[in-house]
């Protein structure tokens, strides 16, 4: 099978390889990791070297193993997060666009309100109010992430709704739900998919940011943002913060490479709409 044109690009390949590598690491961490990520049995703050290639932290844990195990937390949670926001935002946006009138007004004004706050600040308040835990951090990010999808979906649905086949379907007496599912949905999935790919990076940055602030993962858990935070306390042992940060960077970068290539494959108008909304 030949890869589609859009994927035969170096960026997409690099992104795909890195993403795949991380998924493998996440799945196989127990096999790959040289140490127990929680065991405090190594010398403290040992600099990178044989036996502990990424060094050890202030409790004598192996950073390489912790980074590997961190993938088991961050990657599935981020993916779950994006899937949920696509579902929630997409559904709400589709309803707003399809039904219009007060449904549209209510949903979109809500979205506007969420947009009026910088994401971290809103997520921070939500996370703090719910109490610090990784689950609550995910919920908090969800609260700020859905409106982007609602807006894009609404715009796309509005565009599709007036097209002939939808109108004629309605004239034939098909139910609103049916035409939403059969006529509208297939036309909006492409752009939404691109947006979601790009959003994986944003979501991971936000989630690890909350953990960095102490509003997500709780101590011994090897979450990358929290690991960077613990590196702040001992910042002359640079390796403690550097490697988990690089892990975040590479995962986000991989998905951004993929998403950017996918976006180029879309028609420019939709692509721009996405870019504006995805901020």
């Amino acid at each position: 099978m030949k890869l589609p044109q859009a994927w035969r690009q170096p960026l997409a390949i690099v992104g795909g390889v890195i993403a795949l590598a991380w998924i493998v690491i996440a799945l196989a961490a127990p096999l790959l990791a040289p140490h127990d990520p929680l065991a405090q049995d190594l010398p403290r703050l040992a600099s990178p070297g044989p036996g502990h290639w990424f060094g050890t932290d202030q409790l004598g844990r192996d950073i390489l193993s912790r980074v590997m195990y961190g993938a088991r937390l961050s990657i599935p949670l981020t993916l779950l997060l994006v899937v949920l926001s696509v579902l929630i935002g997409g559904l709400l946006g589709a309803c707003a666009g399809y039904f219009g009138k007060w449904v549209d007004e209510t949903i979109m004004r809500f979205a506007d309100l969420v947009f009026a706050f910088p994401t971290i600040i809103l997520a921070m308040v939500v996370a703090a109010a719910l109490g610090a835990s990784l689950t609550n951090a995910v919920l908090a990010v969800l609260v700020v992430a859905w409106p982007a999808y609602a807006r894009v979906t609404r715009g796309l649905v509005l565009g599709v709704r007036e097209r002939e086949f939808v109108v004629s379907g309605r004239l034939l007496g098909f139910s609103a739900w049916r035409s939403l599912r059969v006529d509208v949905l297939p036309n909006v999935t492409g752009p939404i998919l691109v947006l979601a790919t790009l959003d994986i990076g944003t979501a991971l940055l936000l989630l690890s940011g909350l953990s960095f602030l102490g509003l997500g993962a709780k101590p011994p858990s090897p979450e990358w943002g929290a690991m960077v935070a613990s590196g702040v306390e001992v910042f002359d042992s640079w390796w403690v913060a550097t490697f988990p940060g690089l892990a975040i960077l590479t995962v986000v970068l991989a998905f951004n490479f993929l998403g950017d290539t996918l976006r180029d494959a879309l028609d420019p108008r939709t692509a721009r709409a996405i870019k504006e909304r995805a901020l």
């Binding site: 960026l11 990076g201 910042f235 940060g245 960077l249 970068l253 951004n256």
Partner: peptide, 14 residues
């Protein structure tokens, strides 16, 4: 793309 992928808090620390 690298610019939009770097975790700000980590970059600040670095």
């Amino acid at each position: 793309l690298i610019g939009i992928s770097v975790p700000t808090f980590w970059l600040a620390l670095m």
